[in-house]
Design a protein around this nucleic acid. Structure first.
Ligand SMILES: [Mn+2]
Ligand SMILES: [Mn+2]
Ligand SMILES: [Zn+2]
Ligand SMILES: [Zn+2]
Lengths: 135, 135
DNA sequence: AAGTAGTTTAGAACGATTTCAAAGTAAAAA
DNA sequence: TTTTTACTTTGAAATCGTTCTAAACTACTT
């Protein structure tokens, strides 16, 4: 598990390890957690000496998300924000800048959760703590 | 307080009670909590026998939000979702349909919140419980 | 009543994302 | 290998939600 390379990760997820997907996997799946937009990613691809159509970037991000390799953050910003941290976790949100900061799952303790509506099951709990600058 | 009509609410919020704002206030500020998009609202305005430019609807929603008469929900949907429930509260999200269901603030108990980053203050906590259809 | 500042409007513009259809490539079959 | 097949990438056009523009309108003040 710890030793699986990106090509293997893509294969395991059922995705062909194309040149473009490998470029993106090499940027995103390196163990460093981050939040980013499609445009952020394109800039990184460009500065790594590669280039990629924005359509391909969106295609890949959607595939990666649907395979569970990345997540998309719930955000009321106009631009979609993705997250390489796929573990259940929470966020601080700087309302002024839109910056997100991870909160590890263990740092929040929820007790007394409401009853799940009939016919549904809990598929993940996310806590968002909004921040404003002090004073 | 309980007896304040919509015209007074707008005045108190510093907004001129124009014909258009009153039409929207009459739909939204009737004490029934709901989640809606700009398009949802336009449809309701139309079926109430009125009509309004979509630009005006966006203008109003932004003013109402900035005055605290409504809130905007954090959502990764492409379309902005607004909420007439301005009290701090939480949501169930049906991931399949995008439907939101309110959870009263008292129905969730958070203890052990993480330390707020230096220079910031907590400006609101929102819990999202994602739901998927059982089985 | 006249002045003014704020508001509404249709339509154009915008930015993010998706679609399109043609060309390219990875995997499977022969 | 070569051939075949299905999947992927691409740039350009299209779409969609939202904002901008500037002219007409209206609520409030004087
Ligand atoms: Mn969004
Ligand atoms: Mn948009
Ligand atoms: Zn995160
Ligand atoms: Zn709500």
């Amino acid at each position: 598990m710890m030793l699986m390379n990106n090509k293997e990760k893509l294969r395991k997820a059922g995705l062909r390890p194309t040149k473009q997907r490998m470029i993106i996997a090499n940027i995103l799946l390196n163990g460093i957690n981050r939040h980013f937009t499609a445009e952020n990613l394109q800039n990184e691809i460009n500065s790594s000496g590669n280039s990629m159509s924005i359509a391909t970037i969106y295609n890949c991000l959607k595939k990666f998300r649907n395979c569970g390799l990345i997540k998309q953050v719930e955000s009321s910003k106009e631009t979609a924000i993705f997250d390489t941290n796929i573990d259940q976790h929470h966020h601080f949100l700087d309302e002024e800048t839109g910056e997100l900061i991870d909160i590890e799952n263990e740092e929040i303790n929820l007790f007394k959760l409401p009853e799940i509506p009939k016919g549904y099951m809990n598929s993940g709990v996310e806590v968002l703590i909004k921040l404003k600058r002090q004073n």
